[in-house]
Design a binder for these strands. Structure first.
Lengths: 223, 223
DNA sequence: TCAAAAGTGTTCTACCTACACCCATGT
DNA sequence: ACATGGGTGTAGGTAGAACACTTTTGA
């Protein structure tokens, strides 16, 4: 077979390749997503997902972590990250240059975020979004969908819990993500049977009511 | 904020961006995957997934379809296609150039393939793969995993059934994909309750046994 | 003693699994 | 009449959903 069957990779322009990150946390009893204010055209001044172009020698997950660090002021080590989807259908997404975007979504525990210093990210409710740049609103909605699926079929909600917590606190996190109330008894039954909790034999005294048992997770990595 | 915060998209080399396709069909009571023989280094002569570099103005799904057409000799209209994952961690995947690969997987009904003329694709058993180029073996295994999940939680196996078929034929397709036997009564109960089959009120006479009822699918697109 | 959240079991239902025999045909 | 695949129902187990009262504390 002759040369004309080769991909002429050196002979045509390559699209730009970017990574955007949908970063979630739970704060003020709400699911928040970290957004930046764009400083460039197009969509100058609009809120957008933090992102970054993929450098030539950079693994794409590294690009995602760099975007978190540089655009979001968040330490990547404290973030659970998973690839969501790659968007490259709508050629008009970025008017500067034709760009394909690999989107990751992530979870951070809210007390790992410096809400004072890191004024880079605007933490907006994921359930009440203003108009965003590009198709980022659709992307966030898709990320919520995947996050819910993941929470329901695995045991990784602990990504956004502190080291020690009570069952009621864990239940609240589930309720915020799933956006619906959970039955207390069924919830506890389900969680206990996962055998991922360690009873710390401590009580959390808080308020004028019976103190709650304190737990930690046995393992510290999502499966 | 000043210029140094801009992504210097014009100031650094972009990675190459490619699409590979894992194309499945069922033939000879086996799950087959369509592979091409590489005509370039690296891995010259090895079998690999059909793929193509993304052109500057080409939506990525179009790239996948072009790869099917040009590298595989398969009409894209007859293929169900879904994005699988984007691989861009291992920088040594392609020794010519640093490349990120968006992988799609697809299903074709086997009688839409011209096995004579289309000698471009080698239809290898997905369950007994020879050594392949790059990390394509791992990718195919991941695609099988997703295919099984998709088949179990949706009703899209009809993507690889002909227009008219019997319940036993459909069951065989499921068994090949899931790689395990299904109970005949339970299988029929499940399928009937999906209400996606139309009884064509015909009988398929074949062999020395009771003739089978012939069905078609009510809708013709995967959800 | 009251308010407020923690903690705890049982029943019902829906779905999945396992399993065995008769039916219609060609030879 | 027999071999071959087509076609059918029931019983048991499991997982999830609904549901209400007692306990422990601080004020």
């Amino acid at each position: 077979m002759a040369k004309e069957h080769l991909d002429p990779i050196h002979n045509f322009a390559r699209p730009g390749l970017a990574v955007d990150v949908v970063l979630f946390t739970i704060k003020d009893h709400d699911l928040k997503v970290g957004l930046i204010k764009r400083e460039d055209d197009p969509y100058l001044g609009k809120l957008a997902l933090p992102g970054r172009f993929v450098r030539y020698d950079e693994p794409i997950e590294t690009t995602a972590k760099e975007a978190l660090k540089l655009k979001g002021g968040v330490k990547p080590e404290s973030v659970f990250l998973e690839q969501l989807y790659t968007f490259g259908q709508e050629l008009k997404r970025d008017t500067r240059i034709r760009t394909v975007t690999i989107v990751y979504y992530g979870l951070v525990e809210s007390n790992k975020i410096d809400f004072q210093k890191s004024n880079l990210l605007h933490w907006n409710s994921a359930y009440d979004l203003p108009p965003l740049a590009f198709d980022h609103k659709k992307i966030i909605e898709y990320a919520i969908h995947r996050l819910r699926k993941k929470v329901q079929e695995s045991d990784f909600a602990f990504q956004l819990m502190p080291e020690e917590f009570t069952l009621s606190e864990l239940q609240k996190a589930y309720e915020i993500i799933l956006n619906e109330e959970q039955d207390k008894r069924n919830f506890r039954k389900k969680i206990i049977e996962l055998h991922i909790l360690k009873d710390l034999k401590k009580k959390k005294m808080e308020g004028a009511h019976r103190p709650a048992a304190v737990y930690s997770f046995i393992r510290n990595k999502a499966k």
